[in-house]
Design a protein around this nucleic acid. Sequence first.
DNA 1: TTAGGGTTAG
Length: 705
Amino acid sequence: MDMWVGLDHILSSSRLSCPLIEPRIFFGERDNFLVFNQKRFYKRSLFSQKIRWSFTEQGLKPRPKHQNPVPKPLKGEQSAVKDQAEMIVDKNFSSGIYHKIEKLVLQGKYHEALELFEILESESMEDNVVDKSTYDALVRACIGLKSISGVKRVLNYMVNCGFEPDQYLSNRLLLMHVKCGMMVDARKLFDDMPERNLVSWNTIIGGIVDSGDYLEAFRLFFIMWDEFSDVGSRTFAMMIRASAGLELISPGRQLHSLALKLDATDDIYVSCALIDMYSKCGSIDDARCVFDEMPEKTTVGWNSIIAGYALHGYSEEAMNMYYDMQDSGVNMDHFTFSIIIRVCTRLASVEHAKQAHAGLVRHGFGLDIVANTALMDFYSKWGRVEDARNVFEKMPQKNVISWNALIAGYGNHGQGVEAVELFERMISEGFVPNHVTFLAVLSACSYSGLSDRGWEIFESMNRVYKVKPRAMHYACMVELLGREGLLDEAFALIRDAPFEPTLNMWAALLTACRVHKNFVLGRFAAEKLYGMEPEKLSNYVVLLNIYNCSGKFQEAASVIQTLKKKGLRMLPACTWIDIKKQPYVFFSGDKCHAQTDQIYEKLEKMMQEISKQGYVPDGKSFLADVDEEEEELQLCHSEKLAISFGLINTVDSTPLHLVQSHRICYDCHNAIKLMALVAKREIVVRDASRFHRFKDGTCSCGDYW
DNA sequence: TTAGGGTTAG
């Protein structure tokens, strides 16, 4: 029942140009038997009560059921006057070409096949009797090359020859359009088909789902349902994917129920689509149930469930499932490695990533563009941007995502010059930058103080590259100005933006105000943030801090009162470190670990050493003193505990990799910088908002975040 | 003849 309400809502809220079906009427007949959770289905057949409705009443043209065949051109009329012997020669010549085209396609030589087709095109149409198998081969060639011009040539040729495709070839032609992304033509072809079978419907719906027009896919699915007494398991798999695309679980559940009723859940594709749908719609437990019930767990099934866990942030679970997959003996493919490398990035697990990298190469996927991009991202996020560069340079093919990943990698390491050079190289090699590229290159300019170049690129975004600057690009520019202390200019940029300022833009201004100690403008930005998201705890904290810093103690007290009234409290911050393949999590003031005494001893020693280097605790200037009764709670302690633990348990030369649940505070940032200096260790921290690489007494963020 | 899972930014 849920589903139909859901779908009704989707369809009625969408801007469909021609609402074919009134969803409420359509589903009113069917909603009763779809109660998935209770696994209870009414006996009434889904299709027994077809709703009578008129196409014309709905403002639609009736679909021609049996169009009269297009009259064939009077073939041979002219050729009859031709010399008989010449015809035989021509035919032999042409049939040789047909055979050759089919052979080339079988060998995967699509370019050559289409080149040979040119000879047929240049010949007189009357002499050509290209048959179904040659057309089929040409279709394969066009699909293989995704050649729009090829599609047009084949179709044009067929029309000019007066060839009438049968059901099979019509479906193939439809597929050819779909696979080449020619959805408008495909739809027209489909609408004009005199006969449609299950394959025709599946092909067009599949194409629509692939193009991301999920609502339209549902709309067509309903019509299909009405026209057929059967829908295939492939249809279910596609529609489940459409539900996943819409991120709506109720239609997905109802399709699951329907698939169960029609015994389609044994189909491996349906199961995999269900796993993916449930995990993308937020129900990883349901995804796991479907996976557990799969009679045969395939590579795709494993990949789907691992990706599901990864998506939900259950990185350890994802990693465990990956090892289970290995044990099960199922083949791993490039999808598996792409997913698992991304999990390693989240876990900051160098050991696991190295193994995954080795596995990628060993299994023969060393050249895969996606897995390599994930690998580059891993290396650059964890302080090894040159390794990322090596992977990048060895990639035989690159796409905009791989360029973006490396540009962002350099930017995050404070290597703005390299990031801009890479951006320029990307353009010169003919790649088209997208909004992510600009985000990466502008933030790199900001980090590295390349303000002039940053402005040039920002200004060229729309003018040269036709990419409209979004709020995040504006936030980058606010940060760029803010770093230089140009706070009024930053404020003017926000004020004059062609859209309502967003949270990120105010947050960027607030950071600038904090660094440059402009409390008046900072208070303004903090109040804006607070006004936009009054329920968000961190906004109270920044407001509280800025009041404290600007001596507005009365206002600060009022913020604390509001916090208390709302019962909001700081969640315990946590930091995570991976030592010898084993993850360890530390909370603020954590005393649970078996080595607690050693850890605190080491921490005490480190604090003494960094004090000698000039470290003075920052007190509470920017800490959240939310509750006076909890003054002892050291909110920023977890990273220091994790570092102390890391220093005890690792060898001297290895960098320490930390992940934090929260944004690193001012005081901890100073402390870690000196801890890295004193311990002569590189410490890499990925906090809730950005990346910090501490080395030789400096941080890649330039002490600005 | 048609189908399922992956990478950057946020």
